[in-house]
Design a protein around this nucleic acid. Sequence first.
DNA 1: CGTTAGCACTCTCGCTTGTTGAGTGCTAAT
DNA 2: ATTAGCACTCAACAAGCGAGAGTGCTAACG
Lengths: 340, 340
Amino acid sequence: MVLDDRKFMILKAIIDDYIITAMPVGSRTISRKSGVGFSPATIRNEMSDLEELGYLAQPHTSAGRVPSDKAYRLYVDSLLRSDEISTQEKQRIEDYISRRSGQVEDIIRAAADMLADVTQYTSVVVAPRIQTLRIRRVQLVPVSEGTALMIVVTSAGIMKDALISVPADISSDNLYALSEMLTRELEGHTLEEVRQIFARVFRDMSMNRRLLGGVMKVMEEKLTEDAPEDVVIGGTTKLLNYPEYSDIDKAKNFLTIFESKERLAGMLKKNGGMEISIRIGSENEMEALQNCSLVTATYRVGKHGSGTLGIIGPTRMNYRRVVTMMEYMGQVISKMLSGE
Amino acid sequence: MVLDDRKFMILKAIIDDYIITAMPVGSRTISRKSGVGFSPATIRNEMSDLEELGYLAQPHTSAGRVPSDKAYRLYVDSLLRSDEISTQEKQRIEDYISRRSGQVEDIIRAAADMLADVTQYTSVVVAPRIQTLRIRRVQLVPVSEGTALMIVVTSAGIMKDALISVPADISSDNLYALSEMLTRELEGHTLEEVRQIFARVFRDMSMNRRLLGGVMKVMEEKLTEDAPEDVVIGGTTKLLNYPEYSDIDKAKNFLTIFESKERLAGMLKKNGGMEISIRIGSENEMEALQNCSLVTATYRVGKHGSGTLGIIGPTRMNYRRVVTMMEYMGQVISKMLSGE
DNA sequence: CGTTAGCACTCTCGCTTGTTGAGTGCTAAT
DNA sequence: ATTAGCACTCAACAAGCGAGAGTGCTAACG
């Protein structure tokens, strides 16, 4: 079933209006709009059809119509064109983010804040995943009797660190020599390859077996799994400004989403590497997101790294602006993280 | 003006009741309580007196009475005894926290979550400040052409890291030698002393002047200032469960507190190293906290380090339980962080 | 003289009722 | 096919009312 032009136009007008006002839209409102040359009665007939087709819903008889998820889906699929961003705004964004130190977390944090600020919705940024990145350097630094800090530097300059236990009597020089050796062996390899190297090369090094086992274990943990710190949320309370969350229960329900960063990261990563993915209302699996839309985008870091950024807002969000901003922000993050 | 025993007892009864119900307390309610042998009329007279003295307030004529900030102040000053914690609960807390890796952030995070969980209020934990701590180790690790990661390990095992720029042609071995040298010179000294050492010892090392200047600068920044990551918040949305925040505006207002971790840390640190400090309602400077109470405690790390933990809840919070829990949690954190 | 019973008074809360206004659906005229 | 007209529906708001909780005051009591 395909909609004729007029139905299409009316539906678009309704969505445009509802996105701004968050109030059910009546036939008069649409009729008054410039560019629509029909009386309320005609609009009503069309609206009635659209309702039957599942694009509109009525909160109650004698209220206006409200777009359904299906309508938003049609809207984003067929009507979404990228917006322009003023050079002024671009400047502001780049300034804000590039003022940071080169630390990945700082940049991620800044990006999340900025994204929340320009869209006025809640933003989520996941730090670049590291699986396919290659190791550039491994270093062990003594911290105290029996513990050392292990630092892994990867291509793209992303670092991970973790405490591991080492023999109590090992010297600083010894650790350094070990670090150099590890770096020499592992440099340029991916985690997959590292596993094999460990199995092959280090099998006979009985002396440091336990230590190296620890190193491998930490690598697996840190480089495979997304640590909770790698998810950054910006503008958590932004959504409380929208009337759909003026009910305290809905607000509470919504805020629980952010209690588990792991689940959040899981959600975001479901976009399967798509440039931009939009999930509207019931298209979300998570219970608490049934009344929200989730827009996610992927950004690249270097050749093999990639991360995700997302915006969570009401289903009636301003998709055009959000998508535009996400695209741009993705570029900026890529540039910042790869360029370093 | 000192209250006689009966007034005192009645006031306590009112507060106890209000803490649980959050509803204005009437004279009948108090009269019915076991241990009070007076009729509602008598209670009313006393209540009237207490109101005149500023301990009670009436939301409106013919509602019950509500304790004022002054009443809570009296309550915590004179009636607060520590509670007992069941060994079972102690066990649960220690298990949860000690299951973490030794990383400071992890422990802080776990402590904040646990504190929010056992009190059902919002918790804030500030990582130990490092000023008076002594440096144990400095290490530079190459990250990419022209940048290195600088890691400072202090007594108590607290680490700080930062990226600094280094000459592009410096070798890994060279950086290691430099690290060893720095460690040798700075080990066991406080930041104050480090400044002097830099001025004295390294003055003539013209070659690495720029590099060392960078090292010093980062040290100052990282070790002096509290980085925003050092403040961890647990159970942000816990307070939304209480009726005093069922109004969305109040909730929003309250949630803005957590937007700036710096300001939050500033607030917490105002307890001046006191074991336990309680600020009730209007005793707080921050506008958004006028209807809340803030309970803070200091914990020690090693000999010279200290950090703060805090609970934010409604003025009618269960001070007894909160204080008890804070005391215990402070001990646990101390043990975890110092013991490593 | 402290304590208490009794009573009039006040104010919130929840319920019902009426009114208004926005918006619809249908029908008949254009 | 479009539109004007009209009857109808329903949420939202305001007004009015009774019930209930709680107070303050006064007078009686031990």
